[in-house]
Design a protein around this nucleic acid. Structure first.
Length: 204
DNA sequence: CTCACGATTAGA
DNA sequence: CTAATCGTGAGA
């Protein structure tokens, strides 16, 4: 299983493309996180793209640079995580070239391997959907925290593998939770696998 | 230094 | 529908 995934590993070049391209092509891919002896695998079923300078829903809107978001100005292929509501971690992959502060937000996964660990990380519960369907649910299940800030997602124990079967339709909708963005809130920058039951919410 | 609030979630 | 919960960002 893991050697097969290694052959399909996404490289930096893939993540240095535009956010709309990366966000859509990540659907159906596998996120792989290995720690000591455990391996966690999830299929990416829902993403959003954040366009940076001209996108008033983006943390880097207008070229803003803060202690929190400065990582977005790096070249694509590393992780931007931030704490929200004092208790959850939001996980983004920085994309595009250096100094172009764009990102892809991973909103939901389908649990594939390491489900026992995911359940433990989330503190029990048998409902698989509640395990990883939601941007801060799956990060909790996978143990994502500040340690992942700036980490390369093209490494030995932390990477994305291209999905072998991509026979699905992609739904495009507006992004979730960005009503504050007067200008960009309704842009179709959210993508999900149409028939996946692990999408955080079907309509919005 | 102060203070309002969030790319959400769980629970009533 | 609302409370939770604290690091972050903007402003004094």
């Amino acid at each position: 299983m893991i050697s097969e995934l290694n052959k399909r590993k996404r490289n930096e070049r893939f993540f240095q493309r535009p956010p709309e391209y990366v966000a859509q092509n990540l659907l159906g891919d596998f996120l792989v996180v290995k720690d000591k002896k455990k391996i966690l695998i999830g299929k990416i079923v829902e993403t959003e793209s954040y366009l940076g300078l001209d996108d008033d829903a983006s943390h880097s809107f207008g070229g803003k640079i803060t202690a929190r978001n400065k990582i977005m100005y790096h070249a694509g292929g590393i992780i931007y995580v931030y704490l929200i509501y004092g208790k959850f971690y939001c996980f983004n992959i920085v994309v595009s070239k250096k100094d172009v502060p764009q990102a892809v937000f991973i909103r939901a996964l389908e649990p594939i391997e390491g489900i026992d660990v995911m359940k433990r990380n989330r503190g029990g519960g048998e409902d698989l959907k509640k395990l990883t369907a939601g941007p801060c649910r799956w990060t909790q299940a996978f143990g994502i925290n500040k340690q992942f800030l700036g980490k390369s997602i093209c490494s030995r124990d932390f990477f994305v593998a291209r999905g072998p079967l991509k026979k699905f339709n992609i739904v495009k909708t507006k992004r979730v939770g960005v009503e504050y963005a007067a200008k960009s809130k309704d842009l179709p920058l959210r993508f999900y696998i149409k028939d996946s039951r692990f999408v955080s919410r079907k309509y919005y």
